[in-house]
Computed example of a mutant assay.
Amino acid sequence: MESTKDDLVRPGTSGGLADVYRERFLLKLLVRKELKVRYRGSVLGIIWSYVKPGVQFVVFYLALGVFLGMEQSSTNKGGLANYAIYLFSGIILINFFTEALGNASRSIVGNGGLIKKIYLPRQLFPVASVWVSAVHFFPQLLILVVACLFSGWHPSLLQLLAAVAGFVIVALLSTGLGLLFGAANVYFRDSENFVDMLLMIATWASPVMYSWTMVQHKLGEMWYSIYQVNPITIAVETFHYAFWLPTTDGSAGIPPHLLSLWIPVGLVVSAAVLLWGQLTFRRLEGRFAQEL
C-alpha cells in the first residue's frame, strides 16, 4: 500500500517541549546522570548544596547585615528586621536561577558527544539542567522553612501560593533562557560569557540584599515600575512576602500591587521568554550535530 504525503514524517523532526513530556523517562535518566557525574569522586556529595549557599549567606550577612548596618537592632532602627531571613530567602531563589541558567546554557555543548551519535529530543538537556537545579533548591528551601519556624513564622495560604508562583516564574524563565542560550552557544561560544555577565547582573539587580523601598526612593515611581517588570525581582519579592514578612510585625510591607499586578506580569513575561527560547531552539537545532 502506497503511503500518502500526510503519512510521511521527516526523520528527527522536533516536537518541541512536548517531546520532553513524551520522553520523560529519558529526562529522569538524564537528571540522575547529571547528579551522579557532578558528585563523582566528591567526599561531601550533595552536601555541597548546603555548604555553598551557607558560606555565601554568611559572607553577605556579615558584609551587609553587620558591617553596612542592614540588620535592624536597638542602635539601628533603619535596618530590616530578621535580615538573615530576608537575605536567605532571596539567596536560595537567585542560586536556583543562577545554577539552572548557567548549566542549561552549557548543556548542549556539554552533551555534544551524545548528540552527534544518536537522535533524541535536544530540549531534554536544558530541561534536565533546570530539574537538577531544582533538586539542589529544595533542601535549601527546607533549611529556610526551619529557620522561619524558629523566627515565629505564621504564613497565610495566600503567602504560600505566592511563593509557589515565584518558584514557577523562575523555573519558566530559566528554562526559556536556557533553551535560548543553549542553542546560541552551539554557534557562538561567546554566549557562555554573556550568560555569566547576565547572572552577575541578576544577583545584584534584584532586591536580595537590599529593600525594594531603597530602589523606589532612588529611581522614582516611573523607573521603579520598569525595574519591577524584571521577573527575578518579582519572584524574590514573593519569597520575601511568603517567608520573611510573616516573621516580622508586618510594618515593612510589600511592593504595591505585588499580588494583583506584578505576579501575573512575572508569569506572562516568563512564559513569553519560554516561548521565545523554544522557537529559537527549534529553529537552530537542525545543525547541532554538524556544528558540534
Rank of each mutant, 00 (worst) to 15 (best):
E192W: 01
G152T: 15
I169A: 05
W153H: 12
L158S: 08
V186K: 05
L157W: 12
L173Q: 09
N193H: 08
A134M: 14
A184T: 06
P121D: 05
E192N: 03
C148H: 06
N193G: 11
L149T: 14
I115S: 09
I115H: 04
S191Q: 02
K117V: 13
P155I: 11
P155S: 07
N185Y: 08
Y210C: 09
S129P: 06
I143D: 01
R122T: 04
F194N: 02
F181D: 12
R122K: 13
F194Y: 10
I115T: 05
S174R: 03
A134T: 09
A171Q: 10
G166T: 00
F181Y: 12
Y187S: 06
S156A: 07
K116D: 06
V168D: 13
Q159D: 09
G176S: 02
D196P: 11
I118S: 10
K117Q: 15
L160N: 08
G176P: 08
L179P: 14
V208Q: 02
A163S: 13
V132M: 07
F150G: 12
S151V: 14
F194P: 09
L144F: 10
Q123W: 00
Q159W: 09
V208Y: 02
H136F: 13
R189L: 09
V170P: 02
V132T: 12
S206L: 13
N185P: 07
V130I: 13
G113R: 07
M209N: 01
P139A: 13
F194C: 01
Q140Y: 09
F125L: 04
M197G: 14
Y210S: 03
F150I: 15
W153A: 11
A183I: 00
P139I: 13
T175Q: 08
G152Q: 10
F137S: 01
A163G: 10
L179I: 01
L173G: 01
L180P: 15
Y187N: 04
L149P: 00
F194T: 05
V170M: 13
G176V: 00
W204C: 10
R189N: 12
G176H: 04
E192S: 03
G176T: 00
Y119I: 15
T203C: 07
G176R: 04
A202S: 13
V127S: 05
M209V: 15
E192I: 05
G166S: 02
R189Q: 15
L141S: 04
P155Y: 08
L180Y: 13
L161F: 10
G166V: 03
P207S: 08
S156M: 02
S129C: 14
V186Y: 11
M197P: 15
R122C: 03
Y187Q: 08
G182W: 05
A205N: 02
Y210H: 08
